[in-house]
Amino acid sequence: MIRKTFEWALSPMGRIAVLIAALSLFSLAAFGVYQSQQPPEQPIQFTHKLHVGLGVQCLYCHPGALRGPSPGLPTISKCWGCHQQIGKTQTSPLLKPMVDAMAKGEGFTWVPVAQVPDFVHFTHRPHVAAGLNCENCHGDMTQVTIAVNPQVMNMGWCLNCHKQKAAGDEEKLTKLTDCGTCHY
């Protein structure tokens, strides 16, 4: 049975069939990779560029970064705090999802783009405390409309930086390259 299949695969028709199969699998995979690299659809077309350009500080909307593990995503009340005083809020079609959600008393279901897997316990506070700025990891948000993740946040990327920061300090290096620092 196997021999027969193998012989058929070596015949011209067989070769073409195998080629087509391989090609379609490859294109499916490529499509999948492409899909997974697209920024996700957000509940509202929020533009970082505009807000940061207007001088809004990162920590205004993501205050948790200074104190704890998660920077937090703003609640709609925070948006509304400013937007209720802006005339364009009621007229702009782009802002309609916010106006509607506010009227219904619903929240935004933001989709975070900079994520680490469940088995990594990342916390912002020490990174900020160590003097890192937001853009060191998240890129220059003044140039970004809808949030994208500029980095592949994998372990090599983490460790590269950890090793640089700890260069020359044996104790710090031990701590920053310990498995248990992030994985538990």
Binding site: L28, G32, V33, S36, P69, T75, S77, T109, W110, V111
Partner: peptide, 29 residues
């Protein structure tokens, strides 16, 4: 596995925050 190039099937999860988060709470704390 084929579709996503052996990556996780869905990369993104949604987060549903409080509509009116109490002032004393921080995400992650």
């Amino acid at each position: 596995a084929v579709l996503t190039g052996c990556g996780p099937a869905s990369r993104y999860v949604t987060r549903e925050p409080y509509v009116k988060m109490p002032e004393y709470t921080y995400n992650g704390l």
